[in-house]
Design a protein around this nucleic acid. Structure first.
Length: 877
RNA sequence: GGGGCCUUAGCUCAGUUGGUUUAGAGCACCUGCCUUACAAGCAGGGGGUCACAAGUUCGAGUCUUGUAGGCCCCACCA
């Protein structure tokens, strides 16, 4: 061991320089690249590929910090760690962005055509697509950059199409004219999962429809209640509940639909709720999924009134044609009012489905679409989660997953977009023949290719398997080990990856899934662009450092719980980094002039050394367990507590005696030990704080050119180093010192003033006395088993010792009495509890013997203390 | 309507299988310190009937049930 020469090491840790320096170093030395090595067990993570349209937000920071912690931890523990980065083409999101981008230049997607438009998409991707993934480097992620993938890479695209063809041939993909969620903004179908529901303060319009007899005479009126009055133009029936006495007589009669002027039947169906609205429902089969189903049950006509942008088509009366659906709404209501057919308008809040990307209300719409049949595909995927072959953390997500899988409907995978994987299907120009294959038909002039592309998730569902681009890699790295993701894409992505894994690989895609916390702002609101409450992670890194951010976010994010984040919380990490920096600085500065030798480690060892080693082993053990249990915040708390409290507050203070020793060998020995332990500490810390630990680790010794802590061996837990004896000895010293400091504090004795202390205790070793003297700032320490209490002194009783501090002139008798009385009261309070407990026959009889024993011991200890304190008190009187 | 999660100090949260004392940490607060690693620091201190109620148990912050409040997901009430 040979520490680097430090002429001017700064007083505070300065992250900026260290971060850029070491990331470059890691990349240049290719430390994070993984190749197949049959002698090593792989540990694989595929990154949740960020959208090429996305911006880096705090959620990415949490997500990628967690992945990096696991990858670095496993790498240091001897695994062949492989973290595959990449990006998602994000079909609908990107297409919207590019459309808007072109619009600004006065260009319309339809004018330039498919080929030209796709060129713009690729350009856009080349320009912006790598931003997030590059920004992640600032966070210190140890991805294998040689393996960076994109969901539209040639190989990957090929696999996406192969999957389609395969499922098509197995009749798990079909085409159908069905009602889908239609997004009028993007003019495309979207899946059920892409619809989100907003509570809207709307109205319920009550419309009167005339009932007519065979001769078209108006004999009555029925009132229907609707939230979308414009759809009445597509009504083809009116329905009531078969048990509704109010309307029984109307069933089978006809209603004359106003404005449209057509007669439509009154039918009865169980679906109708009698006590909602008026109990009469207008049926618009083309624009409502329930109505559509009812129409099929009753064989009712279906009239589509909309174009693909949800403007009205030729199926509505002339005056309403070619208008936006919300304009039509106003017009229809106005005309009803004119005709005296508007019964009333009431306020009504309901949930309206919105398109996630278009952010407009979706319209149920009938169209030709491609669907994936899910009922069979879901079965093995459900099973592997139930059996624990894929484990969810926290486990309660299993229920959500099961519920979705049990109620799954066929997946609409076609999108009327251009950016994405074009569906590999061709329609024959002069027959009904359909061709599906990777290669185009042999006589392309006779065929027309499907214009739709696939839902983005019908490509990213292969991410865990096809980011490995050859069979050998796939066999070695698949199944991957861990997936770290936000719970909001459990259906979109996690579930579908499991489905794909079971279907195409016949094995799970990953063994563990870590669902991250949802990051909210201080008021508990979601981070969002519109609220402007989402801090830019790069600004935080700039201000606090990447390590501080990584540590803080791990520290405050428990598994399975939302977390309230604010930038200034990063002080936790920054201050901790600084603390470590200064502890290192202290040791390094003192080691400058000393010759450190490994063989000195065993020399001049005392119980403080044994204690800190013992504590370190416990911390290491707790840390390993926490990582295994996916409790990263626990791991950070273990680190924080051990390093700050045990190592810095106590150990470094204890060994100052030896560090300042005139005996060079004593000094060298203690510094060798401390630095060696510190090195292990740095390794433990490295997965969370890679930059700081690399910076310090490089200072601790002369390293080889490409040597890095990131590929060094992680410390191994050694139970033999746990030393309860040493822990007790230090515990005693700590208790005595704390009691003395307490008196100093309460009596306002300045820290600079040395005091005399008398201890009534069995003889103490020289080293114990030294420790107590230096930490208590004691001039003369007298230890005697038969000590008489000195006059005018302040006292304390700890286990194994009575402590007296003569404070002539400084002591106020009344104050001192109050102090002692307070302590007696505290102890007596505790004694009441334990005495009661021990008097309880049931407790003594039924509780385990060791528990009872403990209680008894507590009781005698406290009784002793109280007795002594009472003596002290009576002396004061 | 179904399901999940949460409620512990002024604030943000720990508290693993029920059994170390009268429940911990950080921030904030009070007192004293620029003690030659660190004021982004050191030492000491105050502060909580663990949301409420009942139950199980020798023993409940921890398990069960109910009540109140908050958050989220799913579901076709027009």
């Amino acid at each position: 061991m040979h520490v680097k020469n430090l002429s001017d090491i700064p007083k505070a840790y300065e992250p900026k320089e260290a971060e850029s320096k070491w990331y470059k170093f890691w990349e240049e030395n290719n430390l994070f690249h993984s190749e197949i090595d049959e002698d090593e067990e792989p540990y694989t993570i595929v990154i949740p590929p960020p959208n090429i349209t996305g911006i880096l937000h705090i959620g990415h920071i949490l997500n990628n910090t967690i992945q990096d912690v696991y990858i670095r931890y496993k790498r240091m523990n001897g695994y062949n760690a492989c973290w595959v980065p990449g990006t998602d083409h994000a079909s609908i999101a990107t297409e919207s962005k590019v459309i808007n981008h072109l619009k600004e230049q006065g260009i319309n997607k339809w004018d330039i055509g498919r080929e030209e438009f796709l060129k713009h998409c690729h350009e856009w991707r080349n320009k912006y697509g790598g931003i997030i993934i590059n920004q992640l480097r600032k966070l210190g992620v140890s991805c294998d950059w040689e393996r960076e993938r994109f969901t539209m890479d040639e190989h990957y695209s090929q696999k996406v199409l192969e999957a389609f063809v395969d499922l098509y041939n197995n009749e798990k993909i079909y085409r159908g004219y069905r009602m889908v969620n239609w997004c009028p903004a993007t003019k495309s179908a979207i899946s059920d999962e892409e619809v989100f529901y907003k509570e809207v303060n709307g109205k319920l319009w009550h419309l009167k429809y005339p009932v007519v007899d065979e001769d078209d005479h108006i004999i009555d009126h029925v009132v229907v209640a609707t939230t979308r009055p414009e759809t009445m133009l597509g009504d083809t029936a009116v329905a009531v509940n078969p048990n509704d006495e109010r309307y029984k007589h109307l069933v089978g009669k006809k209603v004359l639909l106003p404005l449209a002027d057509r007669e439509i039947p009154v039918i009865s169906d169980d679906y109708v709720e009698m006590d909602f609205g008026t109990g009469v429902v207008k049926i618009t089969p083309a624009h409502d999924p329930n109505d559509y189903e009812m129409a099929q049950r009753h064989d009712i006509e279906i009239i589509n009134i909309y174009n693909d942008d949800s403007t009205t088509n030729g199926n509505v009366p002339h005056e309403f044609q070619s208008l936006d659906r919300f304009v039509v709404r106003k017009k229809v209501v106005a005309r009803f009012e004119e005709m005296g057919l508007l019964d009333k308008i009431t306020d009504y809040t309901n949930k309206v489905g919105y398109s996630q990307r278009g952010n407009v209300p979706i319209e149920p719409y009938l169209s030709e679409q491609w669907f994936m049949k899910m009922d069979e595909l879901v079965k093995p995927a459900l099973e592997v989660v139930r059996e624990g072959k894929v484990k969810f953390h926290p486990a309660h997500w299993i229920k959500t997953y099961e519920h979705w899988m049990d109620n799954i409907r066929d997946w609409c995978i076609s999108r009327q977009l251009w950016w994405g994987h074009r569906i590999p299907v061709w329609y024959h120009n002069s027959s009904d023949e359909v061709y599906c294959g990777i290669e185009p038909p042999k006589d392309p002039e006779n065929w027309t290719q499907e214009t739709d592309v696939l839902d983005t998730w019908a490509s990213s569902w292969l991410w865990a398997q096809d980011t490995f681009t050859n069979k050998e890699d796939q066999a070695y790295y698949y199944p991957t080990n861990l997936l770290v993701t936000a719970p909001d894409i459990i259906f979109f992505w996690v579930a579908r990856m499991i489905i794909a894994g079971m279907e195409f690989m016949n094995d799970v895609p990953f063994r563990d899934v870590y669902f991250t916390s949802m990051i909210r702002d201080e008021q508990g609101r979601k981070m969002s662009k519109s609220l402007g409450n989402s801090p830019d992670p790069l600004d935080i890194i700039d201000e606090y450092g990447a390590d501080a951010l990584r540590f803080t976010i791990s520290y405050i994010s428990p598994l399975g719980q939302d977390v309230l984040f604010s930038t200034d919380k990063c002080e936790i990490g920054r201050n901790f980094a600084n603390k470590i920096w200064n502890a290192a600085r202290f040791l390094l500065m003192n080691a400058q002039e000393v010759e450190l030798k490994d063989k000195l480690k065993e020399k001049h060892v005392d119980f403080a050394d044994k204690w800190i080693m013992s504590r370190f082993q416990s911390a290491l053990n707790d840390y390993n367990k926490a990582i295994d249990n996916f409790e990263l915040n626990t791991a950070t708390k273990v680190l924080y507590g051990f390093i700050w409290n045990d190592f810095c507050d106590w150990y470094l203070e204890l060994i100052k005696n030896q560090i300042y020793s005139d005996d060079q060998e004593v000094k060298a020995a203690v510094l060798t030990r401390a630095l060696s332990l510190f090195e292990d500490m740095l390794k433990m810390l490295h997965p969370f704080m890679p930059f700081l630990t690399e910076e310090l680790w490089q200072l601790f010794d002369e390293r080889k050119e490409n040597e890095s802590i990131s590929v060094s061996a992680f410390p191994k837990f050694d139970e033999l180093l746990i030393d309860k004896n040493a822990e007790e000895e230090i515990e005693f010293v700590k208790n005595v010192v704390t009691a003395i400091r307490n008196i100093r504090g309460e009596m306002n004795v300045p820290p600079s003033k040395a005091i005399n202390v008398f201890m009534k205790s069995k003889p103490l070793s020289e080293i114990q006395q030294k420790y107590i003297s230096s930490l208590g700032k004691i001039e003369n320490l007298t230890v005697d088993e038969n000590l008489e209490k000195p006059k005018a002194s302040s006292s304390a009783v700890v286990k194994g010792a009575d402590i007296f501090i003569p404070l002539e002139g400084l002591i106020d008798i009344e104050e001192e009495k109050a102090r002692v009385v307070k302590e007696i009261n505290r102890l007596e309070g505790m004694l009441v509890g334990v005495t009661k407990k021990l008097a309880n026959e049931n407790f003594v009889g039924r509780a385990p013997a060791d528990v009872v024993e403990k209680e008894k011991k507590k009781k005698t200890d406290w009784e002793n203390k109280v007795e002594k304190l009472k003596e002290i008190l009576s002396d004061l009187n």
